[in-house]
Computed example of a mutant assay.
Amino acid sequence: MDTEAVRSFVRAAELGQLRHAADELGVTQQAVSKRIATLERELDVRLFTRTARGVELTLDGQAFLPHARNIITGVDRAITAIRPGSRALRIDVLGLRSAQAVVLHDYWRSHPETDLDVVTLKVNDPRMAVAAVQAGDIDASFRSVTDPATLPRDVRMIHAFDSPLELLVGPRHPLASARTLTPSQLRRHRIWVPGIAPRSEWAEFYDQLATDFDLRIDAAGPNFGNEVLLDILADSADVATLVGSRDRYIWPTNHDLRRIPIVNPTLAYPLSLIFPRANPHPGLRAIINHFGSLTPLPETVWRPSWGPNTLAARNRSTSWGPPP
């Protein structure tokens, strides 16, 4: 069924004049008349009778009108749901307590008029997030493809911001009283990061971190969630973990956990944003500009090989066009 013919029928029924319906729809009166005639042939009924004042609905037309309105409403809603700028900006984050979600929330609190839809794709492989961007399932994803040369040509990746690492320990841990720590002070201590997924960007990050600073990063065991991890840290005298400084964690007061910044160098997890190269959602521009307002890191920073030091500097530009 031709939805434009249905739309012409609805407007003609509501206005009582084919000419008025044509003017509103931006077509000729003859086009409206042909559309309605085609619809009548398809339905095998008469929808209108002509009068001196215009057109009036037949009994069949009266019965069809509420259903026709529903058809048009459904079509309009479907188009709105997929048209950038007419729907919420859908952004994928790794978790609702992650640094990405925290930064988005800070932005939204300053710009509450922004229509945001923050989602979490249950995928570890960043290529699946890229595919979701290509398919239009999401408008952008906070994921990193560690080899930018493998990105499809219709997808763009920029460095969004860095998440400095902190050591999270319980009160009995030997490093618990430190105000800051250097990477060398972490050596020989067990850093437990359960559930590191193979082929994920964070698996490559921790591999490089452990190699460059001779750290003991233990990924053994299933990941039962943050609550279980925090309970274990609170009772342990030898287990620590790494968290991002902007990540949001909540624990009972009696856990007495401590978040200790790592300095000289600061260990930075680089967060990237992936979005379509052509016609990105217009709401993305302001959010990308917001990244530039975040507190910069110290000069002495370690990042993995695929961090912004190795990504082309032009990728940090907020221009929507292809990089030069």
Rank of each mutant, 00 (worst) to 15 (best):
M1R: 11
E4P: 02
E4Q: 13
A13V: 01
E14S: 13
G16C: 02
L18D: 04
H20K: 15
H20V: 08
A21W: 00
D23T: 13
L25W: 04
T28R: 00
Q30T: 09
Q30L: 08
R35N: 08
L47P: 01
T49H: 06
G54A: 03
L57S: 04
L57W: 05
Q62H: 03
Q62N: 11
I72M: 09
G74S: 12
V75D: 12
V75Y: 12
R77Y: 08
A78L: 11
G85I: 07
R90N: 13
V93P: 03
L94K: 12
S98E: 14
A99M: 00
A99S: 05
A101R: 07
V102M: 15
S110W: 01
T114K: 05
V119M: 00
V123P: 09
V123H: 12
V123S: 12
D125P: 03
D125N: 14
V130I: 03
V133E: 05
D139Q: 05
A140Q: 00
R143Q: 14
A149F: 06
L151P: 07
R153D: 12
M157F: 05
P164I: 03
L167E: 03
L168E: 08
R172W: 08
H173A: 08
L175W: 02
S184F: 07
Q185W: 01
R187S: 12
H189E: 15
I196L: 13
W202K: 14
E204Y: 11
F205T: 11
D212N: 13
L215N: 03
D218F: 04
A220V: 06
P222C: 02
G225E: 13
L230V: 09
I232N: 05
D235T: 09
D238H: 09
A240L: 04
P252R: 10
T253W: 06
N254E: 15
D256Y: 06
D256T: 10
L257H: 06
Y269I: 03
P270Q: 07
P276Q: 09
A278T: 10
A278N: 11
P282Y: 10
L284R: 01
R285Q: 15
I288K: 09
I288M: 10
S293C: 06
L294I: 04
L294H: 07
P298T: 01
T300Q: 14
V301Q: 04
L311D: 11
A312F: 02
